[in-house]
Design a protein around this nucleic acid. Structure first.
Length: 855
RNA sequence: GUCGGAGUGGCGGAAUUGGCAGACGCGCUAGCUUGAGGUGCUAGUGACUAACUUAACGGUCGUGCGGGUUCAAGUCCCGCCUCCGACACCA
C-alpha cells in the first residue's frame, strides 16, 4: 500500500497488527506478565468479568464484556495495583448434554473442546488473564467444593428436601426455580412449565430475604435498575395477619376454627364483604366436600388447571369464582362474610386466604360487581360528597354504591367504627391504629411478607454437580461423608440412547454411610447457578485441595472491585451470589457481606438494523471477522469507543474502519514524535516555545480528563481525550520544524499517548513502548502518567462576555486577572451595547464568563 | 398497574458543583496529495436569516412538550408526552 511506502520513506514502519499482536501475546505468556501475586506488597484490585457458558466460540457480547474488563484491569495495574483478573467457564448445563445426546458423544468432550476454542480466542484478543487460575466448573476439584458447601448448608438447616407443587419444564425434562420461569416460560427453552407435585431439594434463601434487601442500600457502586429489580423480586410487604373465625354451618355462629389472612390494608377491614380462597386450597375443598357447592367448585378448579400459567397472568383476565356455602365472621363488625373460591387468588403468597374489600381494591371490586356482592364505601376524599354525607357515620349505613371502579387507595375512613375520620392508606395512621387494636384483642398482628421463595436447586439432568446425599430406607436422607467427596459424575452413560443418572446403577447403587445397608444415591444434580454463585471465591485460591478457598487469600482479594457482565443476570446470578456469600460469611469463611463492590452491566451488541444477533437470524458478526482484517486492538478500540459501556449499540462497520484509521494515525504520530524524542533530556518548561508550551499544557489537561474517565469506566470519552492529544501532537509536528522540536517534550508526549491508550490497545502500546520509545520492560510496569492541574492552566484565557445572559463579546485576559480587571475588560468589550443603560450588576465567573445585567 | 431508566445535529454520542450546548468520532462538502483513490493532509459542517455586489461580521431560534425559579437552565422545581427495561391478579 502506498501509505505504507510513504511511511517507510519517513523512517516509520508500517503498522502490522497481525505481526505485532502475535509477538506480544507470545511475550506475555512467556514472561507471565499478568500473573496475580498473592504476596506482593501492592494494594489489590479484583477485576472480574462474568465467565461464559462454553456453547461454542465467543461472540461480540463476550468481546465487549471482556474488552471493558481488560481495559480496567490493565489500567489498574499501571495505577500501581496488584490486579487479580481471572477467567473461567460455567461449564455444566443442558446445551452440552443435548449436544452429546444429538451427536452420541459425551457432554464433557463437547464442553472441553468449546472451552479450548474460547481460550484461543481470548488469547487472540489479548486479554490479560492469569490463565493459571482458570476455573472450569465441571472439573471435580471445583465441583467437590460445591458439594461441600451443600453439606454445610444441610448441617445448618439451609438445605432441605420438600414436596410441593413445582415448575416442571416438559422440554428440558427437569424442574425449574421460580426465578427461572420468565414471563411464565422456561428461561432456557421458552416452553411453558407445568405444575407438578414433586419431592425436591431447596436452599433456604428466604432466611436471608431481609438482609438481601437491606444490603442493597450499601451497594453504591451498583446501577439503580439492578437494585430495583432485586427489590421487586424480594418483594417485601408490610402488613398484618388477621384471624377470622369460621362460622358454623348455620352461617352466623363462630366456631373455634380460625382462618388467617394477610393484608397490607387492615384499615379497610370494615369494608370487607366477602372472603376469598384460591382454587388449590385444601380448606376450600374440605368446606364444599359433600355439599351442593362441590360440583361447581370442582369445575372451577379443573378449568384453572387447564389454563396455562401464562394465560392466568395479567389483570386483564376475567375473574371467576364460586360460593362455598360457608361464612367467616368479621372480627370487628361480627358480620358473617361469605367464603368464595376465586381464580385470582394465589395459594403461595401470604396465607393463601384473602379478605375481599371491593370499594378499595380494583380486583375485589370487579369480582363483587360480577357476582352481585355489596360494595360499601369505607374510604373517601375530603372533596367527595360521600365524605360530607358519611364523615361522622360509624355504623354501616350505605351498603352499596354505584361506581364503575374502585376508589382511590388513600382517603379518610367512613363507616369504620371508632376509626372513622382517620387517614387511611398504605402505611397510614389508620393501619397502625387498627393493627394495634387487633393485637390487643389477640385477633391480629403486624407481619412482613416476602415474595421471594426458597431456591429450588435440584435438576433431573445428568450434566451438573451431583447432590451429595444418599437415601436410605432406614435412616432417610443421609449426607455423603466429607471424606468421600467429590461424588464424581460418571463419564460413561449412554446419553445418545437416552440413559439418565437415575437409571445408571453404577452411580446410584451404594451403601448407607450410617447403617451400612444398601442405599440409593440421590441422582438429581444441582442447578448450574450454584456453580456460578461462588466461582469468584475460588479464583482467589484455585488450587486449594484442603478447602474451597483459604480465608487469608479470600481476604487478600475479595470483594470483587469491578464486576462486569450482562443485565440478564440482574436477578438470578447476582442474587444467588449475594446469598452464597452471606452463607459463607456465616460459616466463618468470609468477613464481608457483599461480593461485588462495583457492578457494570454492559449493553448489548446488536446488528446494523438494531436486531439482536442470533444464529437463527444469520446476522451474527463473529469477532474473527474484525480481528482478521484489522487486528484485536482495532476491535477493542472500536467496541469501547462506539458507545458508553452500559448502552446497547448497533454494529457499524464504519466505526471499525474509523478506529483502525485512528490507531494507524496515532502510530504515525508517536513515531513522528520519537524522531526527536530523548528519554534522558530534562524538560524545562520555561524554555519551550509557544507551540511546545501549549502542547505540554494540553497534555496535562487531557490527561486529567482521561484519568477521570478511566476512574468512572467511561471509555468512550477517555478515548476521545487521547484523540485530542494525538490531534494536538499532529499539529505540533506540522507546525514546528524538526530541528526546533524539544527532545524532552516530544518524548513525554509520545510516552503519555502510549500509556493512555495501552489499556485499550495493548499490543500497539507495547510495540511502540519498545520500538518507538526504545524503553525496556512492559508498558504495564510503567506507572500511569502523573498530571498536574497547575500545568494544565493557560497563561491567558478567552472569556465570554454576556449581556443579560446572552453572549455578546469575548475578551482575552490573563488567567490570573482580578475580578476588577475582568469586569473592566468586559464592560469595555460590550461598551456600545450598554451605552445609555444602567449597569445593575456584573457577575464574574473566573475562567468562564462575565455577565452584565443592564437595562 | 408498580418500580427503574432515557429523550441533545444526518448518525454514535460530549457537557464536575447551574456558567460560552453540540467535545471526540462517523457521515457529508470543498481543496491539496496521487497514475488512481476504499490512503494521507487541510478547511468547513445545528437550523433559520434582513439589508448588501460578494464575503466576513452579525441577528434570531435551538437539548421531547408546557409552565416556573435564576443575572444565567440540557442541568434545579411543578405539570404533561413519548420510548425502553424489569416485575405483574403479591391482597
Amino acid at each position: 500500500m502506498a501509505s505504507n511506502d510513504e511511511a517507510r520513506r519517513d523512517g516509520i514502519p508500517a503498522y502490522d497488527a497481525q505481526a505485532i499482536e502475535a509477538k506480544w501475546q507470545g511475550v506475555w505468556e512467556r514472561e507471565e506478565t499478568f500473573k496475580a501475586r498473592d504476596d506482593s506488597g501492592r494494594p489489590k484490585k479484583y477485576v472480574l468479568e462474568m465467565f461464559p457458558y462454553p456453547s461454542g466460540d465467543l461472540h461480540m457480547g463476550h468481546a465487549r464484556n471482556y474488552s471493558i474488563g481488560d481495559a480496567m484491569a490493565r489500567q489498574a495495574r499501571m495505577r500501581g495495583f496488584e490486579v487479580l483478573h481471572p477467567m473461567g467457564f460455567d461449564a455444566f448445563g443442558l446445551p452440552a448434554e443435548n449436544a452429546a445426546i444429538k451427536h452420541n458423544t459425551q457432554a464433557a468432550s463437547w464442553t472441553y473442546q468449546n472451552m479450548d476454542t474460547a481460550v484461543a480466542t481470548m488469547k487472540r484478543m489479548g486479554f490479560s488473564y492469569d490463565y493459571d487460575r482458570l476455573v472450569r466448573t465441571c472439573d471435580p476439584d471445583y465441583y467437590k467444593w460445591g458439594q461441600w458447601a451443600f453439606l454445610k448448608m444441610w448441617e445448618k438447616g439451609l438445605a432441605y428436601r420438600a414436596t410441593s407443587p413445582v415448575n416442571w419444564c416438559p422440554s428440558c425434562n427437569t424442574v425449574l426455580a421460580n426465578e427461572q420461569v420468565v414471563d411464565g416460560k422456561c428461561w432456557r427453552c421458552g416452553s411453558v412449565p407445568e405444575k407438578r407435585e414433586l419431592s425436591q431439594w431447596y436452599l433456604r434463601i428466604t432466611d436471608y430475604a431481609q438482609e438481601l434487601l437491606d444490603d442493597l442500600d450499601k451497594l453504591e457502586g451498583w446501577p439503580e435498575n439492578v437494585k430495583a429489580q432485586q427489590r421487586n423480586w424480594i418483594g417485601r410487604s408490610e402488613g398484618a395477619e388477621i384471624d377470622f373465625a369460621l362460622a358454623k354451618e348455620d352461617g352466623v355462629t363462630p366456631s373455634n376454627r380460625l382462618i388467617t389472612v394477610f393484608t397490607t390494608r387492615p384499615d379497610t377491614l370494615y369494608g370487607t364483604t366477602f372472603f376469598l380462597l384460591p382454587p388449590e386450597s385444601p380448606l376450600a375443598a374440605e368446606l364444599v366436600s359433600g355439599t351442593e357447592y362441590e360440583e361447581a367448585y370442582l369445575d372451577l378448579k379443573k378449568s384453572v388447571e387447564q389454563v396455562s400459567s401464562v394465560d392466568r397472568q395479567g389483570s386483564e383476565r376475567e375473574k371467576h369464582g364460586v360460593f362455598t356455602g360457608r361464612y367467616v365472621i368479621n372480627p370487628l363488625t361480627e358480620q358473617p362474610l361469605p367464603i368464595w373460591v376465586a381464580d385470582y387468588i394465589l395459594m403461595d403468597y401470604g396465607t393463601g386466604a384473602v379478605m375481599g374489600v371491593p370499594c378499595g381494591d380494583q380486583r375485589d371490586f370487579e369480582f363483587a360487581r360480577k357476582y352481585g356482592l355489596d360494595i360499601p364505601p369505607i374510604i373517601a376524599q375530603k372533596d367527595d360528597p360521600l365524605y360530607e354525607e358519611l364523615k361522622d357515620e360509624r355504623e354501616l349505613r350505605v351498603r352499596n354504591v354505584d361506581w364503575d371502579r374502585a376508589m382511590a387507595a388513600e382517603g379518610y375512613l367512613i363507616q369504620s367504627g371508632p376509626f372513622t375520620g382517620m387517614l387511611g392508606g398504605k402505611h397510614s395512621p389508620a393501619v397502625d391504629a387498627i393493627t394495634e387494636y387487633l393485637f390487643e384483642r389477640c385477633i391480629g398482628r403486624k407481619t412482613v411478607q416476602f415474595r421471594l421463595r426458597d431456591w429450588l436447586i435440584s435438576r433431573q439432568r445428568y450434566w451438573g454437580n451431583p447432590i451429595p446425599m444418599i437415601h436410605c430406607d432406614c435412616c432417610g436422607d443421609v449426607p455423603v461423608p466429607y471424606e468421600d467427596l467429590p461424588v464424581t459424575l460418571p463419564d460413561d452413560l449412554d446419553l445418545g440412547a437416552g440413559e439418565t443418572l437415575a437409571e445408571y446403577a453404577p452411580f446410584y447403587e451404594t451403601t448407607c454411610p450410617k447403617c451400612g445397608k444398601p442405599a440409593k444415591r440421590i441422582t438429581d444434580t444441582m442447578d448450574t447457578f450454584t456453580c456460578s454463585s461462588w466461582y469468584f471465591l475460588r479464583y482467589c485460591d484455585p488450587h486449594n485441595e484442603e478447602e474451597p478457598f483459604s480465608k487469608e487469600l479470600a481476604k487478600r482479594w475479595m470483594p470483587v472491585d469491578n464486576y462486569i457482565g450482562g443485565i440478564e443476570h440482574a436477578i438470578l446470578h447476582l442474587l444467588y451470589s449475594r446469598f452464597w456469600t452471606k452463607v459463607m460469611r456465616d460459616l466463618g469463611l468470609l468477613d464481608f457481606d457483599e461480593p461485588f463492590t462495583n457492578l457494570l452491566c454492559q449493553g448489548m451488541v446488536k446488528d446494523a438494523n438494531g436486531d439482536t444477533m442470533s444464529k437463527s437470524k444469520g446476522n451474527v458478526v463473529p469477532p474473527s471477522s474484525v480481528i482478521d482484517p484489522y487486528g484485536a486492538d482495532t476491535m477493542r478500540l472500536a467496541i469501547l469507543f462506539i458507545a458508553p459501556s452500559e448502552k446497547d449499540f448497533n454494529w457499524d462497520e464504519e466505526v471499525v474502519a474509523g478506529a483502525n484509521r485512528f490507531i494507524k494515525r496515532a502510530w504515525r504520530i508517536v513515531w513522528g514524535l520519537s524522531q526527536t524524542a530523548d528519554a534522558n533530556a530534562a524538560l524545562d518548561v520555561a524554555k519551550l516555545d509557544k507551540q511546545g508550551r501549549e502542547l505540554f499544557r494540553r497534555m496535562h489537561e487531557l490527561g486529567i480528563r482521561c484519568t477521570a474517565d478511566f476512574d468512572r469506566a467511561q471509555f468512550n470519552t477517555a478515548i476521545s481525550a487521547v484523540m485530542e492529544l494525538v490531534n494536538d501532537a499532529s499539529g505540533y509536528l506540522n507546525n514546528v520544524a524538526i530541528d526546533r522540536r524539544d527532545a524532552a517534550l516530544t518524548f513525554v508526549v509520545a510516552r503519555t499517548i502510549v500509556s493512555m491508550l495501552s489499556p485499550i490497545c495493548p499490543h500497539w502500546g507495547e510495540e511502540l513502548y519498545h520500538e518507538a520509545l526504545g524503553l525496556e520492560g512492559s508498558v504495564y510496569d510503567e506507572p500511569w502518567p502523573e498530571f498536574d492541574a497547575e500545568m494544565a492552566k493557560a497563561a491567558t484565557v478567552e472569556l465570554a462576555v454576556q449581556v443579560m445572559g446572552k453572549v455578546r463579546g469575548r475578551i482575552d485576559v490573563a488567567a490570573d486577572a482580578s475580578r476588577d480587571e475582568l469586569e473592566r475588560a468586559a464592560l469595555e468589550a460590550v461598551g456600545n451595547l450598554i451605552a445609555g443603560k444602567t449597569v445593575r450588576k456584573v457577575i464574574v465567573v473566573p475562567g468562564r464568563l462575565v455577565n452584565i445585567v443592564a437595562n
